[in-house]
Design a protein around this nucleic acid. Structure first.
Length: 149
DNA sequence: GCCAACGTTGGC
DNA sequence: GCCAACGTTGGC
C-alpha cells in the first residue's frame, strides 16, 4: 500500500469532519500534478490528512483511500466553487475519489515541528515554495512522521 | 492582511 | 514557444 499526503482547509473538510462523516468525497483538486497522483491511488492506500490555511497548519490525522479516482462532479456543477466551464460530462479533466477516516491525532503535527525532523528533506511539503496539495510519501518518510505522533 | 512563490493564461 | 500579467496558495 502506498502512502500519500493531502491538504485540506479545515473550514472545508477537517479530520474531525471526516471522523463524523466516516467517509467523504475528496474533490476540487484543480492542479494536473495533484490530479495525476489521485489517479495513481488505490483503495487501501493511506494518507496524512494535512490542515492548511488555518491557525495550526500541520498533519491532523490519517485517512484511507476508499475508491479509485472517478470524474470530479464538482467540475460540472455551476453552483460549485470548483466549477470548470471547460469540463463536460464526456470530457471532464478532473478527478475525485472517496476517502474514509482512520485516526485523528491528539494534537496537530505542526509544520514547524515537521521541519525539525531528519529524513524529510525530499518531502514536497517541506520544499521551498511547494504548493502541491496531493503528494506521495515514501515509506521511510511515513515512518519518521508517525514516530512523532 | 501581507507577500513570496508558483501555475495558468493569452498576446505576440 | 516565449514571457509578462494575473490569480492562487498558504505560511506568517
Amino acid at each position: 500500500m502506498a502512502h500519500w499526503l493531502m491538504k485540506s482547509e479545515p473550514d472545508e473538510l477537517s479530520i474531525q469532519d471526516l471522523r463524523r462523516l466516516t467517509r467523504a468525497r475528496w474533490d476540487g483538486v484543480r492542479n494536473y500534478q495533484a490530479r495525476n497522483f489521485l489517479r495513481q491511488m488505490r483503495a487501501g492506500d493511506t494518507f496524512f490528512f494535512y490542515h492548511s490555511s488555518c491557525a495550526q497548519p500541520g498533519i491532523a490525522g490519517i485517512g484511507r483511500i476508499a475508491s479509485p479516482a472517478y470524474p470530479d462532479p464538482t467540475a460540472l456543477d455551476p453552483q460549485s466553487p470548483y466549477f470548470d466551464t471547460k469540463a463536460t460530462a464526456e470530457k471532464n479533466p478532473w478527478s475525485a475519489l472517496d476517502v474514509e477516516f482512520v485516526e485523528a491525532f491528539p494534537e496537530v503535527l505542526r509544520l514547524s515541528a515537521l521541519k525539525t525532523l531528519a529524513g524529510l528533506e525530499n518531502l514536497a511539503l517541506l520544499r521551498k515554495g511547494n504548493r502541491l496539495s496531493v503528494m506521495p510519501v515514501e515509506p521511510a518518510e511515513w515512518r519518521v512522521i508517525r514516530t512523532l505522533r
